[in-house]
Design a binder for these strands. Structure first.
Length: 489
DNA sequence: ATGTCC
């Protein structure tokens, strides 16, 4: 077992199993070291793109605490790597839109059912067609709800509370959502009219890219006690919904990147990559971005709620029973592109930090006060989608997450290649046919190109990613699922 | 991710 890993000019030292460190070079402007949580096999893949340079650049941000982190699914992104975690002093540091990502509150929710695979097998096409019909997907406009200006304000201001008031949610849905589906710091007045206009006709829509709705079956139970607390068991049918804040969140990110360039040019010039653009903590711009981002977070939660609402209707039609009788409770909804003010113990003292999780999932452990009461005894559910050919995992927040990763773990399998490269390697129709004939997985998409971009071979091995999380006790395996049918943009 | 460039 070697103690260093040479990644083409960047040297990583092994701290312990699955923990690698890029030493802090103060002369180069690094404020802290960088850490990468990965097996050697994953590190071999991670080193092939710019992730390691990017995470080293992140350590230059003023006020960053302890170390910048790459989760095991890391790949290169815009400024920050996707799969990046950075905790930055909320008083004397900064907040970075690039550390959140364009798709603010991209995230995942899992809906349970009391159906088993036997109930669905042979009816996949009927189900996938009905879901495709009921859930708007693809680029551009068209949502479940036709919004006006007042609707948008309500959603941005109140998040899932809006959905409850309007009859799209039941109270229990809010309890099974990170932050109860509502960020009180949201400031709709900090969201541009252009962003609101883009969101207006996208309320309740999947979007494109890696976003999808997938019916799955539970294939493996790793922890009986926690699975029982979550209400999950072998052969059970569940539904996974993966999407974000659509054009609205994208526009918020673009607007504030532009304003940082205009209003803080000197600060920007001091950073190694202009795509790391950050607003100094305490500045008016930092407050406005935080308020706008929180509003976009609320929008994304309503978006996933409306897609779940439609899913419940579809199951009622197809399986001819009220959704309550079908056991279609929300297990949990997690955000994986987000920055939040949180208090963490750092060097023995409690400190308020902006925890940036860009392609990383909150993974709070048992006993944490922010874990909903139903799950507080075992830790929060962490939902990690794999590719449409691999299946997904439910983890529980692990005992070491607070000490190791500011309460975070991975968010997916992580890409192995760019979308452009994926389209050269795969053809959508072939991928779709192979999944159906060899794996009995029914995929329906607006665009063949999207299927190629999201082909299973485009992703890292989700089992390997989860092994790292489980071994480090930051997110522990509870159940694994396998796809039944999938709709996407 | 995204009305894949204002």
């Amino acid at each position: 077992m070697s103690d260093t890993f040479d990644a083409d000019g960047i040297t990583l030292e092994r701290v312990r199993d699955y923990v690698w460190e890029i030493e802090q070079a103060e002369s180069e402007g690094m404020n802290v070291p960088a850490r990468v949580l990965a097996s050697e096999a994953l590190l071999e893949e991670i080193k092939e793109d710019d992730s390691l340079e990017q995470i080293r650049n992140v350590t230059h941000l003023p006020g960053i605490q302890q170390y910048a982190l790459c989760m095991p699914d890391a790949h290169q992104g815009y400024g920050f790597p996707v799969g990046g975690v950075a905790a930055i002093d909320a008083e004397n540091g900064c907040i970075s839109p690039g550390g959140v990502g364009f798709d603010i509150n991209c995230g995942v929710r899992m809906v349970k059912t009391n159906l088993t695979y036997d109930d669905v097998e042979g009816r996949e096409e009927e189900l996938v067609d009905a879901l495709f019909e009921a859930v708007p997907s693809g680029l551009g406009g068209g949502g479940v709800v036709d919004g006006d200006a007042e609707t948008i304000e309500g959603i941005l201001e109140r998040g899932m509370d809006w959905a409850l008031e309007e009859g799209y949610a039941v109270r229990e849905d809010l309890h099974h959502c990170e932050d109860e589906g509502y960020r009180p710091d949201a400031d709709p007045s900090a969201v541009s009219k252009k962003a609101k206009d883009r969101g207006m006709n996208q309320i309740g829509s999947l979007g494109s890219g890696n976003h999808f709705l997938e019916v799955q079956r539970v294939t493996d139970v790793f922890d009986d006690e926690v699975a029982d607390a979550y209400g999950l068991e072998a052969e059970q049918i569940v539904v996974l919904i993966h999407c974000g804040s659509r054009g609205l969140g994208h526009q918020v990110c673009s607007d504030y990147l532009r304003r940082i360039e205009d209003e803080h040019p000197d600060f920007l010039k001091s950073l190694p990559d202009k795509n790391l653009a950050a607003a100094p903590a305490g500045s008016e711009l930092a407050e406005e971005y935080y308020g706008a981002m929180c509003a976009a977070i609320n929008f994304a939660w309503v978006n996933r709620q409306l897609i779940m609402y439609q899913t419940r209707q579809v199951f009622e039609d197809v399986f001819e029973a009220p959704w309550e009788d079908l056991g279609m409770e929300l297990l949990y909804d997690v955000a994986h592109n987000i920055a939040k003010k949180e208090v963490h113990e750092i060097d023995g003292e409690e400190k308020e930090v902006y925890v940036h999780r860009k392609g990383a999932t909150r993974a709070f452990p048992a006993g944490h006060p922010e874990v909903p009461s139903a799950y507080r005894g075992v830790g929060q559910p962490v939902i990690i989608p794999g590719s449409m050919g691999a299946g997904s995992y439910v983890l529980r927040g692990g005992s070491e997450s607070m000490a190791t990763t500011f309460g975070s773990t991975a968010h997916g399998a992580g890409r192995l290649m760019s979308r452009t490269q994926a389209k050269q390697e795969f053809w959508g129709g072939d991928v779709q046919e192979e999944l159906r004939e060899e794996n009995a997985i029914y995929v329906k998409a607006q665009s063949g190109a999207t299927i190629a971009e999201e082909a299973p071979g485009v992703y890292k091995d989700v089992d390997e990613v989860i092994e790292v999380s489980d071994s480090l006790d930051i997110g522990d395996k509870v159940v694994r699922t396998y796809p039944v049918c999938n709709i996407k943009g």
